[in-house]
């Protein structure tokens, strides 16, 4: 699939994803060792984006499973399509009558029906959810399990079987093996500790906020309309904000939103007015916005305010 690490980085780069050497190494290893990747890091540093770029660069389809509290197997794996089963029994009533036409007793009818039961519990009536889709797909896929830390512990335990053997058991059908081993990327925002067992099965990738230069490169790539000087200024402001004690740090995606906003507003430079008007694109809490305003507007007093704010 990939020749070497440089190839990984190049191909991801073609999908407008700037991968560090570390990301390149881990993705390459995921292919050569056939292991899932667990990507951790603050929200909005491009963990989900990596999966998309990965899928595009290899030409594999992307299947996404978004986790949330209360997610269970029937939502993630498969469900029996009751309505379709009902519909079929209604439509096939005549055929059923033929099958059961000459029976005399209820017991005989039941046993004859039991012989045909398999028809109703076949793959025709199985509604595959993301995990099963990924396993039974005819071509290899990239499976993105997003925000695994939001799912319950039981679900995490259930995932272990899928991730280590790439197979699932459906009681009515038996064990389904993966036709092709999917490339799996799990993401986590660190809101809770994941279990050791899950971590053990994955390659670990920690993605942090990028350096100023790297972020500038991303902004240039994704928002080419922004003037270079302005982009530099904008990224510098974002980095300054990340050094402050805020409730929620501005993420890369918010930097990009802001950059687009600056383009849309046709801003020529980041002066106080532009900043005040657009700060809410970057910061999502009123207290944070106020803090940042005091910091930015403070000028000489910046240091004192900075300390006071803590």
């Amino acid at each position: 699939m990939f020749k070497d690490i440089a190839d990984v980085r190049g191909k991801l780069g073609q999908q407008q994803y700037i991968a560090s050497e570390e990301i390149g190494t881990v993705v390459y290893l995921a292919h050569s060792l056939c292991k899932p990747i667990l990507a951790e890091g603050p929200a909005g540093v491009g963990k989900t984006e990596l999966a998309k770029a990965w899928a595009l660069s290899t030409g594999m389809p992307l299947i996404r499973l978004q986790c949330y509290e209360g997610l269970d197997e029937s939502k993630a794996l498969y469900e029996w399509e009751y309505a379709k089963q009902m519909l079929y029994t209604q439509l096939l009533r005549d055929t059923l009558r033929n099958v059961l036409g000459d029976v005399n007793s209820l017991a005989e009818a039941a046993s004859r029906l039991a012989q045909e039961e398999d028809v109703f519990f076949s793959e025709n009536f199985l509604l595959p959810r993301p995990l099963l889709t990924a396993l039974t797909s005819d071509e290899p896929v990239v499976l993105l399990i997003d925000e695994i830390d939001r799912a319950d512990v039981e679900f995490e335990a259930f995932l272990l079987e899928v991730l280590s053997d790439f197979q699932v058991s459906v009681p009515e059908l038996g064990t389904i093996h993966a036709k092709h081993q999917p490339m799996v990327l799990l993401t986590s925002n660190n809101t809770r500790e994941l279990s050791e067992a899950l971590k053990r099965r994955c390659l670990y990738l920690h993605i942090d906020y990028p350096s100023q230069d790297a972020e500038l490169e991303i902004v240039r790539l994704k928002v080419p309309d922004l003037k270079p000087a302005l982009a530099q200024q904008a990224v510098a402001v974002v980095h300054q904000l990340r050094n402050m004690d805020l409730r929620k740090m501005p993420s890369i995606s918010e930097t990009l939103d802001w950059a687009r906003a600056l383009v849309a507003l046709n801003a020529s430079s980041i002066d106080e007015k532009t900043l005040t008007n657009t700060l809410t694109v970057l910061l999502k809490y009123e207290t944070d916005v106020q803090k940042a305003r005091r910091m930015m507007g403070g000028g000489d007093d910046g240091g004192r305010h900075g300390r006071y704010n803590r």
Partner: peptide
């Protein structure tokens, strides 16, 4: 699979597999 010639790559491959 990656070899040890490039030290940076060697380091990230060890880190990704060992430290979770």
């Amino acid at each position: 699979s990656l070899g040890i010639t490039n030290k940076e790559v060697f380091r990230s491959s060890l880190r990704a597999t060992l430290v979770k």
